[in-house]
């Protein structure tokens, strides 16, 4: 069984927001909804040693996902391959998952009356394709793959010891990993 994960190489991300746009177009999101913002850390430091880092945020598809536990209707679910998704017809937009998610990855759709989120483009993944944000990234700052496959790039990157997990202290076990310069404090 696969266990999908994503690695964000912030050293490569230039903050062009192509991933954000590709995601919104593919998912036909209203203008006030974003699944994967790219936030900017900095600039920090003193000239000429100035640094700016772009941090792409997204649903972390946590193994211990508090959003799934919080959902009273069972609309928030996790597939065996780790992808966390919302079954829209069951969602009543109680926002329990919005409040439970420590990463701000869930967004209310006020027109539909549901909560929506990144699902790693699971329709594409099921066809063996990459998520739109990964396909669009011209800097190859997003790497997607199967953590259970030792030959995959994500497996190698994660197991070389560099990537970190955001808010790892919360024990949510996120499956989106970040490669950041050691000077950057997340």
């Amino acid at each position: 069984m696969a266990r999908y994960a994503m690695v964000m190489d912030t050293r490569r991300c230039v903050g062009c927001h192509s991933c954000t746009v590709a995601c919104r177009v593919h998912n036909e999101l209203p203008l006030d909804m974003i699944y994967n913002p790219v936030v900017t850390v900095g600039p920090t430091g003193v000239f000429p040693n100035v640094r700016m880092t772009n941090l792409p945020l997204i649903c972390m598809h946590c193994d211990n996902s508090p959003c799934v536990d919080a959902c009273p209707t069972g609309a928030s679910q996790q597939r065996p391959d780790g992808i966390v998704f919302v079954e829209e017809k069951k969602c009543i937009s109680c926002k329990a998952c919005v409040m439970a998610c420590p990463y701000g990855a869930r967004v209310p759709n006020h027109e539909k009356g549901t909560i929506q989120k990144c699902n790693f483009c699971m329709d594409r993944v099921d066809e063996g394709k990459l998520p739109h944000c990964v396909k669009t990234c011209h800097q190859k700052a997003r790497i997607f793959g199967d953590m259970d496959d030792p030959t995959s790039e994500v497996y190698k990157l994660v197991n070389n010891g560099y990537p970190v997990r955001l808010l790892g202290e919360l024990n949510t076990e996120p499956y989106v990993f970040y490669i950041v310069d050691s000077e950057v404090k997340l």
């Binding site: 536990d69 919080a70 959902c71 009273p72 209707t73 069972g74 609309a75 069951k90 969602c91 009543i92 937009s93 109680c94 926002k95 329990a96 209310p108 759709n109 006020h110 539909k112 009356g113 549901t114 909560i115």
Partner: peptide, 24 residues
């Protein structure tokens, strides 16, 4: 009334693992 879909409020009784369900 706070729900996005108030007419489907009965769904909150469904998931026994959720604390909101227990509360309901």
């Amino acid at each position: 009334l706070e729900l996005g879909r108030p007419f489907q409020a009965l769904r909150v009784f469904v998931n026994p693992k959720a604390i909101l369900t227990a509360g309901a």
